[in-house]
Amino acid sequence: MANSYQVVVCGGIVPDPLQTLEPVAGPAGPALKNEMMLPAVLDPWAGHALYEAAALARKFPGSKVYLVSLAPKAKLQQVMMTIAQRVPLELVALDGPGGGFTDSAETAAALAGAIQGIAGLDRSKLLLFGGWESASRGAGSTMQMVAERLGIVDQFQGVDELQIGEDGSLRILERVEGGQHQVSVCDAPPALLGWATGNLGEPANNAQVGMQNMRTIMPSLQKAKPTQLKSGIAFASVALPKLQRETRIVKDASVDEIAKEIADWAAAE
């Protein structure tokens, strides 16, 4: 197989999932309390997309992985310190708002612009990857709009598997209703794949990969284009849901007692 690919992964950053989140009213609409102080991680589904991209690039020598990311530069730099140890990549950084309360259409416009600016991009090798949703906005709409802007009409969402056929066709498994996968075959790139979890674990840290990546990542961060997003969204309210339940803790009951209670509860209509 002589194919090689240019895999462009779009991935934002989100607060470390262990942080306590609280909305506040900011000058430009809602924001997270202490947003700039919260530690950040790569958006988890975009992370799966990135790991899949890296695995594909390993399999097809000559392939290249780009990570296009829109986030405040300082936060992006922090996140790169973990990501760049795992996957060989070239970063295309945009310095702008990375929170969830922005409009996906605006984010898509910025990302598409950045992708169009990548020198030497070849549509016949282009695979556009991303998470099928973000863990911030959770809309699952950005990638489709990026692809539309790039003229890509072979699009897949909730992808768990990509296999490249002998003829270079793309066999793709997408999550659909009822716990099933839809199987589709696309003739060739370009295509958009919005990834769900895929089948790969998180790659272990690799000092050598990190070393290599940093030669390009830091210059890319240094010249990250300042990006502003307009928003057509007006927020009538933003609030934490009422979470707390009154938990009854059953501590000293026998196994039989507990089992009976659970069985009765489970069987009740």
Partner: peptide
């Protein structure tokens, strides 16, 4: 501090290691 350092591109600081 790490931000100032990393932005120079001259050193690498890797957490989680």
């Amino acid at each position: 501090v790490s931000e100032q350092l990393m932005m120079t591109g001259m050193v690498q600081v890797w957490p989680g290691m």
